[in-house]
Design a protein around this nucleic acid. Structure first.
Length: 891
RNA sequence: GGGGGUGUAGCUCAGCGGUAGAGCACUACGUUGACAUCGUAGGGGUCACAGGUUCAAUCCCUGUCGCUCCCACCA
């Protein structure tokens, strides 16, 4: 028993590591495919192997863990599938940066050696993030941990690629891509971010070929691209230029003759109304060029330096140097019409941060448009639901306008594309080289050397398969049958397009069923001023530092309490501090219970209780459990947290534990033992309800408060059953009685404060004998009434034969209070008069408005007269008056 | 240009047809035998603004303004 005595405070650091390893060793996180229980599945968004835990992860995984722990306690067979993502570009960058310090480049090392090195790095550092998730208390099925590049997932990726290719849903195409000149790879539209840049708009004059004295003026923000111009476009209806359509201009600096073409893309209202066309380096121009049948001239190399397609003086120049030179040279020729300051959005690579160039290359694409159709319908039909609902708009908007998805990347770290080229460039897409050889043999009729495509797939390609690839697909495993589709997906809105949409497409295509029923989109965590946390702003709050300082449970509770739907989370440190205090409060309540020998009683059931206060707290427990369960079902995490907080601190600590003190120190042994048993029971229920949010402190208390072990009480809270109560436990009468008590107490307090009763002195509180037969149960409430009086520093005199129901007695108490002879009636009258005068004008209006002149006019006098004996009536009248005034202000 | 979100106490935010809520901060008093405190009470709000629907609007509708996010585009 002594071993389990609670220290004065809770020390998180001590218990967290110990309890986590106990849980993990006990295997309670593991899903059980052989179980008969209903499964509940959450696919963890795999964090990048390069990652370290930030506040977004902390929120994301806390919420998932709450759901998983809660469902586990409900008896569901939970699978929380963990894993990490190989994060192609990000990881490659990390390793290359490391190598740069050793003056090494990946090209010097060679592909195989480089990849070896990345694997070595992964082996060394890849576990950081999962260790950090453990510290958060996350309880996924670690034994099933996967990596997007492990063998099983590789196989799934290859199979998906090959099948989609055979179905014509993956194809190779030459078109403009977003080229990252720093990373030397194409990236998808989603990996491009537009940044506002203060630049210039240069207006150049292009002379007409057949009349060098006439010019057509074009404007550009990227002067260097003029070296690749192959046309000038004007609007077909633009009268200024109609006669020029079909004539040629001489492209300055280059000398190339290029046509003036008509295309409605040219906006007569913008600039000069004429626009230069550079098909190889602008997405719009590419389309215009295609329509007009003009050639596309590529003027950049992969570093975005000018290549040999431009005149000699510009060759090899960086694009920005070339820009300066082009402007200077045109200026020298007098061909610069004007230069205006111009602010515009410029595409940047989200990883490299450099300006992206549209560049003409061969890449692999997914026909997203086709795959999107079933994915759109699934959400329309409600087979998958977003919470909050409005994110469905975002999803639809993007899916309905979806563009081909460029999936090839010119990097080394990732899933190498399973495509092999024959000597003549014919491509064979197969799951492995052997199959490709067979296909080639069939095609050529002889063995030949095949060259594998060097590119790798976009990281998100493999993540898109996560919901089924991790549980066995393409094999038909029991896990695949049991855990697909998942129940909930918990993620941030920033990856709805990157990940959620693509899982929907792939899941529906290959599994013929949505990958998850509900997508819960949570908010972004910002700093306390509402700024996005970022390294460059230096406003990052490290979740693990907070966990060190205040305890993991306090951090988890904070995030939960702030996770309201529809608003970003502004995280302030003092919130965490507040919830640390909450943990301390809980700890001390438990300590109080222990000191008072409130220990769980074998076979105890909270029915047939004698003490009102006990029936009341049981009622509160049931209501709180209902609220928490309903809140979790609706993903309203903050409501769950708030119900738990209010119950724990308000109902349990402030009211129940205070009210029962007189009982516990009193002489009524039956009442005492009942109260002890109920107190212990309530605390147990509370620990159960709090466990999903605050797993550590609750588990620790569960253990400490159960020294002997009770057969019916699970030894570990993590596997304790989530409560389902009998409706009969709700006792409305007890609830009403307690409300009366509370009301009386507040009445006494009000009187005290209004009468300026000096501290320490007492108000006599008389309990009038109603003259009826004594009720036995009044005696039961004696302690309660005494407690009430003590709280109010009142003195209680029981009549010779206390009678009536508790409520009746308390009712009498309110009536008798003012008769104690301490109230200064003149003072009271003046106070009321002042109150009424203050609202005289309004009263008159109310009077008219309500046609209730009689009551209002007489109210003051009557109220005061009545009040000489019944202060409560006066209070009621004031309330009525206030109500009337309120109605008035509305009208 | 298109689409969201949001505007409630000094701060951070809940609530969302029926007399305005919490935490923190502030003030006063009380507490050191569960509580690195805790308790009780208090001050503090035309619920952004203007219309509309309703017996009744912070809540629903329309519009305006502010802040913010996403997507597209600006030669």
């Amino acid at each position: 028993m002594l071993d389990n005595a609670l220290n004065k405070t809770y020390t998180p650091a001590e218990v967290e590591a110990r309890l986590y390893s106990i849980w993990e060793a006990a295997g309670v996180f593991a899903a059980d495919a052989g179980s008969t229980a209903r499964p509940y599945t959450i696919m963890m968004p795999p964090p990048n192997v390069t990652g370290s835990l930030h506040m977004g992860h902390a929120l994301n995984h806390t919420l998932q863990d709450i759901l998983i722990r809660w469902r586990r306690m409900q008896g569901r067979d939970t699978l929380w599938q963990p894993g990490t993502d190989h994060a192609g570009i990000a990881t490659q960058m990390v390793v290359e940066r490391q190598m740069a310090a050793e003056k090494l480049t990946r090209h010097a090392l060679g592909r195989d050696k480089f990849i070896e090195r990345v694997w070595a790095w992964k082996a060394e550092s890849g576990g950081i993030i999962t260790r950090q998730l453990r510290r958060l208390g996350a309880s996924p099925d670690w034994a099933k941990e996967r990596f997007t590049m492990d063998e099983g997932l590789n196989r799934a990726v290859r199979k998906v690629f090959v099948e989609l290719h055979k179905q014509g849903l993956i194809y190779r195409d030459k078109r403009l891509v977003n080229w990252d000149p720093c990373l030397h790879t194409a990236i998808s539209d989603l990996e491009v971010e537009q940044r506002e840049i203060k630049g210039h708009l240069w207006h150049f004059k292009y002379p007409l070929a057949d009349d060098a004295s006439r010019f057509i003026t074009v404007a550009t923000t990227r002067p260097e691209t003029m070296l690749g111009d192959t046309a000038v476009a004007v609007h077909p209806d633009d009268d200024r230029y109609k006669e020029l359509i079909g004539r040629m201009v001489v492209l300055p600096l280059v000398g190339r003759l290029i046509p003036i073409i008509a295309d409605s893309y040219a906006d007569p209202e913008t600039g000069s109304g004429a626009v230069k066309i550079t098909p190889a380096h602008d997405f719009n121009d590419f389309e215009v060029g295609k329509r007009a049948g003009v050639v596309a001239i590529n003027i950049f190399d992969r570093d975005a330096r000018l290549n040999d397609a431009v005149p000699e003086p510009y060759r090899g120049l960086d694009r920005f140097d070339a820009r300066k030179k082009v402007v200077a040279d045109l200026e020298a020729l007098g061909l610069v019409d004007k230069i205006e300051p111009h602010t515009h959005k410029v595409p940047h690579g989200d990883r490299s941060g450099v300006t992206i160039e549209p560049w003409l290359t061969d890449q692999w694409y997914v026909d997203a448009k086709t795959l999107a159709q079933p994915a759109i319908r699934a959400v329309e039909d409600g087979r998958t639901e977003f919470v909050p609902k409005h994110w469905e708009n975002t999803y639809f908007e993007w899916m309905r306008n979806i563009q081909p998805w460029c999936i090839s990347r010119q990097i080394w770290w990732g899933h190498q594309i399973p495509a092999w080229y024959g000597p003549d460039g014919v491509v064979f897409v197969e799951e492995d080289e052997k199959a490709a050889q067979v296909a080639a043999l069939n095609y050529y009729g002889e063995q030949c050397v095949l060259r594998r495509d060097e590119d790798v797939l976009d990281t998100w390609f493999s993540s898109a398969l996560w919901p089924f690839s991790t549980i066995g697909w393409p094999d038909q495993t029991p896990e695949l049958a049991r855990y697909y589709p998942g129940d909930a997906l918990v993620t941030g809105f920033d990856i709805i397009f990157f990940w959620v949409a693509r899982m929907m497409m792939m899941g529906l295509h290959f599994m013929d069923e949505v990958p998850f029923r509900t997508v819960y989109i949570h908010a972004l965590v910002r700093d306390e001023r509402g700024q996005k946390m970022s390294k460059s702003k230096g406003n990052i709050i490290d979740p693990l530092e907070l966990a060190d300082e205040y305890g993991t449970d306090a951090l988890r509770f904070t995030l939960t309490a702030l996770a309201a739907q529809g608003r970003d989370i502004k995280l302030a440190k003092n919130r965490v501090e507040g919830y640390r205090n909450f943990a301390t409060k809980l700890w001390n309540a438990a300590r109080y219970c222990q000191i008072n020998q409130c220990v769980p009683v074998l076979g105890f059931s909270p029915v047939n209780l004698n003490q009102t206060v006990n029936r009341w707290i049981v009622t509160e427990v049931v209501r709180t459990a209902d609220k928490v369960t309903a809140a979790l079902e609706a993903f309203r995490f903050n409501e769950a947290a708030s119900a738990l907080y209010q119950f724990t601190w308000g109902s349990f600590c402030d009211w129940y534990l205070e009210f029962t003190k007189p009982i516990l120190t009193g002489a009524d042994e039956a009442a005492k033992s009942e109260t002890r048993a109920v107190t212990a029971w309530v605390l147990d229920q509370l620990l159960v309800l709090l466990h999903p949010v605050m797993p550590y402190i609750t588990e620790e208390l569960w253990e400490k408060l159960n020294p002997g072990g009770i057969a019916t009480r699970p030894s570990r809270l993590i596997v304790a059953p989530w409560p389902v109560y009998e409706r009969g436990l709700i006792d409305e009468a007890a609830d009403a009685e307690m409300n009366w008590v509370v009301k009386v107490i507040s009445e006494v307090r009000t009187v005290r404060s209004e009468m300026n009763v000096p501290p320490g002195s007492q108000i006599p509180l008389l309990m009038r004998d109603t003259g009826q037969a004594a009720f036995a149960h009044l005696a039961r409430h004696r302690a309660l009434i005494l407690r009430l009086a003590r709280l109010a520093s009142a003195e209680v005199h029981f009549g010779a034969a206390p009678t009536g129901s508790v409520q009746a007695v308390l009712d009498e108490a309110t009536l008798i209070l003012p008769l104690a002879g301490v109230i200064d009636l003149d003072q009271e009258r003046a106070r009321l008069k002042k109150e009424i005068d203050k609202h005289a004008v309004e009263i008159a209006k109310v009077d008219k408005k309500l046609g209730n002149a009689d009551f209002i006019a007489k109210a003051p006098e009557e109220v005061i007269v009545e009040n000489r004996e019944r202060r409560a009536a006066a209070a009621a009248a004031i309330v009525k008056l206030d109500h009337a005034l309120h109605m008035l202000t509305i009208s």
